[in-house]
Simulated scan of single mutants.
Amino acid sequence: MKTLPFWAVVPAAGIGSRMRADRPKQYLQLAGRTILEHSLHCLLDHPGLQGLVVSLATDDPYWPDLACSKDSRIQRADGGRERADSVLNALLRLEALGAAAGDWVLVHDAARPNLARSDLDRLLDELADDPVGGLLAVPARDTLKRVGADGRVVETVDRSLIWQAYTPQMFRLGPLRAALAGALAAGATVTDEASAMEWAGQSPRLVEGRSDNLKVTRPEDLQWLAQRWHDQGRD
């Protein structure tokens, strides 16, 4: 299988207040390294990577202490008020580094440290010739309820039509940059790159990935992952 070249973006300017920690969640420790280092590792370890931009808060005091901050393949961009701002800044930095409008860009969450190489390869392989791009996702497993403003159930949603969006999300640089810039200018709510592409009239493709590619959001997520890695001998 031919290795598909790609660029990567990791927005890492968030605070992660739900973790109730003394630092942004991406800098919490997991098996001897920070969550961010683990999240970067799978991308940096792939032979198709052309370069990576990490978006950071301008006053971030933690990044310079990480060994990967000295990696020549990683460039820094300023983080923005929202995720979309941070990703857009990173895309502009990629263009300055020589990335072309038709190049593939993978955007990965800074706090999603358990990305499997098999999922990354599947995403690259299945979307290599796709006209739009897409994202890793997992079908909903639980019964889903839609509720009203009073907190009471309005209906049970058909879960066969619902997927959970994960990362990486993979789109060509030019269309993604235009979609993010347009959505931000219009004041549209975009929570991930796929929603920006949807706002621009595109239909991203879903590629089923592993359910353990979880995003660390709450303390119990980190505890679960630490225990899982311990059981697997990864600590």
Rank of each mutant, 00 (worst) to 15 (best):
W163G: 12
W163A: 13
Q164P: 02
Q164C: 11
T167P: 02
Q169F: 02
M170D: 02
M170G: 06
M170W: 03
M170F: 00
F171D: 00
F171T: 00
F171N: 07
F171V: 00
G174Y: 01
G174N: 04
P175Y: 05
L176Y: 12
L176K: 04
R177G: 01
A178G: 12
A179M: 00
A181V: 07
A181H: 07
G182L: 06
A183P: 06
L184P: 04
A185Q: 15
A185S: 11
A185G: 03
A186K: 13
G187F: 13
A188W: 03
T189Y: 14
T191E: 10
T191R: 14
T191V: 15
D192F: 03
D192M: 07
E193T: 12
S195K: 08
A196L: 05
A196H: 05
A196V: 05
M197T: 03
M197C: 12
E198S: 12
W199H: 10
W199A: 14
W199S: 08
A200K: 03
G201M: 11
Q202Y: 02
S203V: 11
P204M: 07
P204D: 09
R205K: 15
L206W: 07
V207S: 14
V207P: 07
E208I: 13
E208Y: 06
S211D: 14
D212F: 07
